Simulated assay, not measured.
Amino acid sequence: MLKRVLASAVAGAAIGVAVTVPAYAAPFTTTASNLNIRSDAFLSASVVKVLAGPTSVEVDCQKSGDSVTVGSRTTTWWAHLPAHSGYATVAYIDTPGAKLPGVPDCPQDPPQTGDVTLADVQAMFGSRIANPSLVQTGLPSLNQAMRDANINTARRKAAFLATLVHESRLEYNIREIGDTRLYGGRGYIQLTGDFNYGPAGRYFGIDLLGNPELARSLQWSAPIARWYWTVARNINPYADALDMGRVNAAIGYPAGSEDTRRCDSFKNALRYLTGSVPSGVKCTRPAKMSGDTSKLTRTQFEALTKSPGTVG
């Protein structure tokens, strides 16, 4: 049965703290020890808390995300636990079905229709668009790559475009200035290293190791950016969670002042796309992601988000 949640709101108001509390929440019990509570409904999303044992929780909404199988039950549904500021897979909640009964779906960042235009990116990033005609030439292929990668919400578009404008100024054929390495930075996402050129080439069936200049061709620059965003890494969930710190870590450079600059560009893009910057944007990354993660595999990178011995 749903019940009104008021106590925490009253307590917060009493001490002058702004508290966002759902109108209703339903009580459930988790079933696992060391259960990860994540920032979003994805196994790659950051862990915000670990519940040590079976715990009584209140759920205000649920959303579809990554599939989790426990025993004979498989579910893609994740419960939002407002008291813990995150999501737990329904697979570890005491309910017989794949979805919680009587709990509404969480509101979603709605998909945005329409391609990104030159005027859009100029409004988002200003003088960072240094060569408008070149950016315009590449936009059809870049928009196609965004559709292929499901970069179709304001948060995902803002994170992707903010990343690329810092990597390449949104110029598809750029070569990293002064980088004379055979597998140095090229293209929209500045593909770097044989550990990326090799897998990306195999994915597309082209010889990037033998012909690395393909990485900054109009034909392949945008698809390679999409490959890195969704295959080499799984970055959309970080964008969904407004976690620009982890977006930056996933790109693979060491933490520093560049993180702040990219996060500012992310906020500018969100402001342009939605009219405001939502609360909860994270600009910093966890300490264990502060180094150069570029050579990690996707599995190794995602392992950084999970503590040993935890589930979910």
Results as ranks from 00 to 15, higher is better:
304 L>N: 03
253 Y>W: 12
200 A>P: 11
265 S>L: 05
164 L>Q: 00
243 D>I: 02
245 G>E: 02
66 D>E: 01
147 R>T: 13
218 L>R: 06
208 L>Q: 08
40 D>I: 04
220 W>S: 04
92 Y>M: 00
39 S>Q: 13
147 R>N: 10
25 A>K: 02
133 S>I: 11
268 N>R: 15
102 G>V: 01
165 V>Q: 00
62 Q>N: 07
279 S>R: 08
36 N>R: 15
255 A>G: 05
102 G>T: 04
139 L>W: 05
74 T>I: 03
10 V>A: 14
280 G>W: 00
289 M>V: 03
180 T>L: 14
123 A>W: 09
195 F>H: 14
285 R>L: 09
286 P>S: 09
148 D>Q: 13
121 V>E: 01
295 K>M: 09
117 T>S: 15
1 M>A: 15
284 T>N: 15
12 G>Q: 05
118 L>E: 00
38 R>P: 14
127 S>A: 07
148 D>S: 12
306 K>S: 14
310 T>Q: 07
187 G>Y: 04
89 T>A: 03
42 F>Y: 14
199 P>A: 08
207 D>E: 02
103 V>M: 03
206 I>A: 05
81 L>N: 02
23 A>L: 14
138 G>T: 01
130 A>Y: 15
59 V>K: 10
41 A>W: 09
172 Y>N: 01
9 A>T: 09
191 L>I: 10
103 V>W: 04
125 F>K: 00
231 V>K: 08
200 A>I: 08
118 L>D: 04
246 R>A: 00
235 I>V: 13
58 E>I: 08
277 V>D: 01
260 T>N: 12
206 I>S: 00
220 W>P: 12
